[in-house]
Design a protein around this nucleic acid. Structure first.
Length: 353
DNA sequence: AAGTCGGGGGT
DNA sequence: ACCCCAGACTT
């Protein structure tokens, strides 16, 4: 047994981080805007997933002014496939706020930066420490896992209130000389050494300061209660083409799941008391004649599952609903679609004609 | 405090 | 299957 020593902990962690850190695109800039973009993309999203999105996004919107003036459809197209699309809208709202009311300078205090849309306790601390070198805590899932082991904290990390315990712990042990490397070191350690299962303790730079390692409890931490399972929803999806080789697509509502993303007409099985052909006439003002059965598709979200039966056919009728558009193949490439619709569209294209 | 909000990869 | 991910927002 040995007591936790914050001096050697900081030194070991930061030296390891500076020596072993991965080369990531957002680590090659000190631009607070770019750090901000990376932190929003990294919310609940793995590094390897984010890298290509980050590079394309910075290429499309190199400065806050260019993101501020972008139209939402172009913004969502950049975010397409990354998920949690309100992140993109909130990021743009926050950037507009900074451009208009902060003279295009990202705020440097937790109080001010936390007022920006989409910037919560973690992201505020991450931007302040990484971009500005401020000694602010940035507690994410990695940090809670690492510190639950290092400090043998057995609170349930699934409970919102538990995060405050870790924020307090970080505040007490953070290195004020290099808060950026300290915070990023904790997260890097969680990502590559102190992993959820099979932590690589023999390679860990702070093993000598880890209470769980000495107690042999690293595999039993962190404590986290389970989440309940997801519900399944069943839909029929219609790839409907008119005589001008255009396809009917509708824009989802501006709030809720996949807000403002485009989809093919879809009808829930729960509404099956009416004939689906009649429902298509009612809801989409078309007469649809089914010609091809594209098969079944399944898509799992965090809290629900879509099971979809997909059909291709021709549509008669000039649907002029304001939520719907007839789009050519080329135009479909320009609108933002969620992954389930991308999968269906890909299957249709690869099937030919 | 609990539910909503994507999608992918690991085990 | 289930878990987790550089979480935030709404109710």
């Amino acid at each position: 047994m040995s007591e936790f020593n914050k001096i050697t902990f900081r030194k070991s962690l930061i030296e390891w981080y500076l020596e072993e850190k991965r080369n990531l695109p957002w680590r090659e800039t000190s631009d607070p805007y770019k750090i901000w973009v990376s932190e929003i993309m990294l919310q609940q999203t793995r590094v390897d997933t984010v890298i290509p999105y980050y590079n394309r996004f910075i290429d499309a919107f190199p400065s806050m002014e260019e993101l501020a003036s972008a139209d939402e459809e172009k913004l969502l197209k950049q975010w397409e496939g990354l998920g949690y699309y309100s992140r993109a809208r909130n990021l743009q709202a926050g950037v507009r706020e900074v451009v208009e009311n902060y003279n295009s300078v990202v705020p440097q205090t937790r109080e001010e930066i936390s007022t920006l849309k989409g910037v919560g306790p973690y992201t505020a601390g991450a931007i302040l420490s990484i971009a500005y070198g401020r000694p602010e805590h940035a507690v994410d899932g990695n940090v809670m896992r690492v510190l639950s082991r290092v400090l043998l904290i057995k609170e349930d990390i699934a409970k919102p209130k538990t995060r405050k315990i870790f924020e307090q712990a970080v505040s007490e042990i953070i290195d004020v000389q290099d808060p950026s490397s300290f915070n990023q070191g904790l997260m890097e350690l969680g990502a590559v050494i102190c992993t959820p299962t099979s932590p690589k303790c023999l390679l860990c730079p702070v093993r000598e300061n880890c209470s769980a390692f000495f107690a042999g409890e690293q595999n039993d931490l962190p404590i986290k209660t389970k989440n309940k399972k997801t519900k399944a929803l069943h839909y029929d999806i219609y790839v409907a083409q008119n005589e001008h080789k255009q396809f009917l697509m509708e824009k989802r509502p501006e709030t809720g799941l996949l807000a403002n993303m485009y989809q093919f007409p879809m009808i829930e099985h729960a509404l099956k008391e009416m004939d689906t052909i009649l429902l298509l006439q009612e809801r989409y003002a078309i007469h649809f004649s089914k010609e091809i059965d594209l098969g079944t598709f399944k898509h799992v979200f965090s809290h629900l599952t879509w099971e979809m039966n997909c059909f291709v056919g021709h549509a008669v009728g000039e649907s002029q609903l304001d939520t719907c558009k007839w789009l050519t193949i080329e135009e479909i490439k320009e609108v933002p679609m969620p992954v389930p619709m991308l999968k269906i569209w890909k299957a249709y294209i690869e099937r030919g004609n």
